[in-house]
Nucleic acid binder design. Structure first.
Lengths: 350, 350
DNA sequence: TTGAAAGCGCTAACAG
DNA sequence: CTGTTAGCGCTTTCAA
C-alpha cells in the first residue's frame, strides 16, 4: 500500500488545536478566531493536507455527485451536453460520474447498481428501453431525483424531450416536395421515445401529403453507426431501392455515407441523405449533408437545472416535461430523385 | 433529504445473524455456512440492499478507482483508448473517474485536487505542460502510481509514447517526394512531447532530403480545431502560401479542412492535407484524407496493464517507457503542388 | 470560541 | 463457522 495520507488528526496536532476546530476551518464556519484559523491554515498547507472526500461524504450522508448515464458519452455532440451539465453542476458543488452503457441492458443494470453503491444524489438518464421492468425497478430503488433525457418512462420523473416528430415530418415533407417517394427511415427500436416519435413524424408527412408509404422502408432496430451501414446496404439492394435516406440517430450518418460510397453512388445525384445532429462530417462532406439539429448545450443546462431544483429545493413537485425544438438545416445532400431528374432533363431537351 | 437507505445492520437483523456475517457474505468469503448464506442473500434481496461504497472504501483504505485525466475525453479517437482502459481495469475491479482538463492549467490543478480528495489509487495522465512546477508538485503529492500518456515528465513515471517523430518524418518525405517544398506543420506547444517530436520529425525529413525549410511554416501553439482553423487561414494568406498542411493534433483536421474550403480551395488540387488520427471525417471526405494513425485501443490496454502492475504487484520497479509505432495511411488528399502540376501539364502539351 | 465525544456504514482481527 | 468489537477520517452535537 502507498504511504499514509495525512489526516485531519495530524493537522490538528500540528496546529495545536482540536480536530473539531480543523473541521470547522475546512468547512468555512465563522466561529473560529482569526489567529487560530491562520494557524490551522498554515498546518494544512505545510502538510499538504487534502480532506478525504470518502470520509466527508460518508459522514454527511450524501456524495455531492450526480450520475449521468447515456448510451455513449464519446459522441462529439454529447460532449456539449455533458459540458453544459458539468458547468451548472460544478458551480453548485456537485461532481459528475459518467457512465456509458453501450446500449446494453446488462451493462445498464450493472451501472445502476454501481451508481447506487456510490450513493449518487441525482441522475440524468437515457435508458435502452422504456419497457423493461427490471430496469425501472432498479431505477426507482435508487430513491433519488432523476431527469430523463428523451425518455418518458418512468412517468413520475422530470423529462427533457426533443421534438423529433415535428422535425422528421418537416424533413419528409421536404423530400416529398423534391419528388422523392421511396424515403428510407433508419432509427432505433420503437420501444424508445425518439425512435417512436420519428416514425410518427414520418407517417404524419406521408398522411398529410396523401402519399402512400412503404412500411418496408422504415427500419427500426438500433441507433448505431453499424446499423446505419448495414441497413443502408440492404435497402440499396432492394428493387426498387429508396431514393432518399434519413439517418434517425446521432451516430448513424457515417454508416449511411459509408454504405452509399461503397455502392459507388453519389450524393445527392443518386441518393439523397439527411442526418441527425450536426457534425464535422456533415458540415465538411462534399456535398455538405443536410441535418436535423437541436441544441444539446441548452438541453444540458436545463437538465442540470431541473435536477438541481430537486436536489436543493422542493423535491416533491409534480414531474415536469420540457420539449425542445429541432430544426431542419438544408445543405447540399438532397436533390430530386435520379429518375425524376432524368425525366425533367428529357423534358427540357424537348 | 431522501429516504434512508438500508444498511448492513438491517440486513443482519432481518437475516437473524450478526453484521460481520453479512459482511463476509458480501465479500464472498467461504467461511459461511450454506444455510446462513442463503438466509443472508434472501434478506439482501428482499431489502434491495446495496453496500455503501463510500463506507467500504473508507474502511479498506483505498477507493478501487483510477483517475484518467486528459485534455478532452469526448474525441471519438479517445473513446477507443478509454474503453480499452476501462475494460482491463473493470475486470480487475477498478472503476474509472474521467476528468477532462480542456488543456487549462487551472482546471488541471483543480482536478488533481479533486482526484486527490477522492483518494484514487492510480492515475493515467496527459498534462498541458511538461514544464510546470506546481503541476508536477501536485501530481507527486498524490503519492500514487501514474502512467503518462505521450508525456515524459515526471521522469519517474511509467510512460506510453507514440512515435510521432518517425511518422511525421515519413509524412514530410512523402510530401517532398510529391514535389512540395512549402509544407506547413500545425501542432501544439513544444513544451509538450508530441508537439516537440513532430517538429523534430519534420526537421529530420528536410535535413535528410537536403531541402531548406522555412521555420515560419511551423506553427506550434495548440492542438485545438480552432487553432488549426485560424492558422490555416493565416498561412493561406501568406505569399507564397504553403502547398501542403500537416494537422499535428488529433482534433485539428476539421479546422484545417474548414479553412481550406472557406478559401474556395480544393483538396488535393490546390492544397494537400494530412491529418492526425483516423476519423469518419478523414475517411468519408471527398477525397478521403491521408492520416497519421496509431492504435489507441492498444495504447489503452497497455496503459491499464502498466498501472495494474503497479497497483497490485511491485510498485517500486524502475519507470518503464513503451513506444508505439504510428503509420502513414495514404489516401487521396495529397497530390503534386499546383504550380508543379501546371508545369508538368505544359510539358506534356509540348 | 473551542474541545470532547458520538457515530456515519463498513471490514477485519479476535474470540469463542 | 459465527459473534463481538475496534476503528477508517470526518462532521456535528453537547459542554465548557
Amino acid at each position: 500500500m502507498g504511504a499514509e495520507r495525512v489526516t485531519i488528526q495530524e493537522v490538528a496536532k500540528r496546529a495545536g488545536v482540536s480536530l473539531g476546530t480543523v473541521s470547522r476551518v475546512l468547512n468555512g464556519q465563522k466561529t473560529v478566531g482569526p489567529e487560530i484559523r491562520a494557524r490551522v491554515e498554515r498546518a494544512i498547507c505545510d502538510l499538504g493536507y487534502r480532506p478525504n472526500a470518502l470520509a466527508q461524504n460518508m459522514r454527511r450522508g450524501h456524495s455531492r455527485a450526480v450520475g449521468i448515464m447515456l448510451r455513449e458519452f464519446t459522441l462529439p455532440v454529447l460532449a456539449g451536453f455533458i459540458k453544459a451539465v458539468q458547468q451548472v453542476l460544478r458551480s453548485a458543488g456537485y461532481s459528475l460520474i459518467l457512465a456509458g452503457s453501450d446500449d446494453q441492458r446488462e451493462r445498464e443494470i450493472e451501472l445502476l447498481d454501481a451508481l447506487s453503491s456510490r450513493r449518487i444524489d441525482g441522475l440524468i438518464l437515457t435508458t435502452s428501453s422504456e419497457a423493461d421492468e427490471e430496469l425501472l425497478e432498479r431505477q426507482e430503488a435508487l430513491q433519488i431525483p432523476v431527469v430523463l433525457l428523451d425518455r418518458t418512462v418512468p412517468a413520475n420523473c422530470d423529462a427533457l424531450l426533443i421534438d423529433h416528430r415535428t422535425v422528421v415530418c418537416r424533413a419528409v415533407e421536404y423530400l416529398l416536395s423534391l419528388g422523392h417517394r421511396r424515403i428510407a427511415l433508419l432509427t432505433g427500436s420503437e420501444s424508445v421515445r425518439p425512435a417512436a416519435e420519428r416514425v410518427l413524424g414520418y407517417r404524419d408527412a406521408f398522411a398529410q401529403a396523401g402519399v402512400e408509404l412503404d412500411p418496408d422502408l422504415i427500419r427500426t432496430r438500433s441507433f448505431t453507426t453499424e446499423f446505419g451501414y448495414r441497413e443502408t446496404l440492404v435497402l440499396l439492394s432492394r428493387r426498387p431501392p429508396p431514393t432518399a435516406f434519413i439517418a434517425g440517430g446521432i451516430a448513424m450518418l457515417p454508416g449511411v455515407l459509408r454504405a452509399v460510397r461503397e455502392r459507388g453512388l453519389r450524393v445527392p445525384d443518386d441518393v439523397s441523405v439527411i442526418g441527425s445532429c450536426d457534425s464535422d462530417l456533415a458540415e465538411l462532406s462534399t456535398p455538405p449533408v443536410s441535418v436535423l439539429r437541436w441544441d444539446y448545450a441548452r438541453l444540458g443546462r436545463v437538465a442540470a437545472e431541473l435536477l438541481l431544483e430537486r436536489l436543493e429545493g422542493d423535491r416533491t413537485g409534480p414531474p415536469r416535461r420540457i420539449t425542445v425544438e429541432a430544426e431542419l438545416i438544408i445543405r447540399g445532400s438532397c436533390a430530386p430523385p435520379a429518375a425524376l431528374a432524368k425525366a425533367e432533363a428529357m423534358q427540357n431537351d424537348v
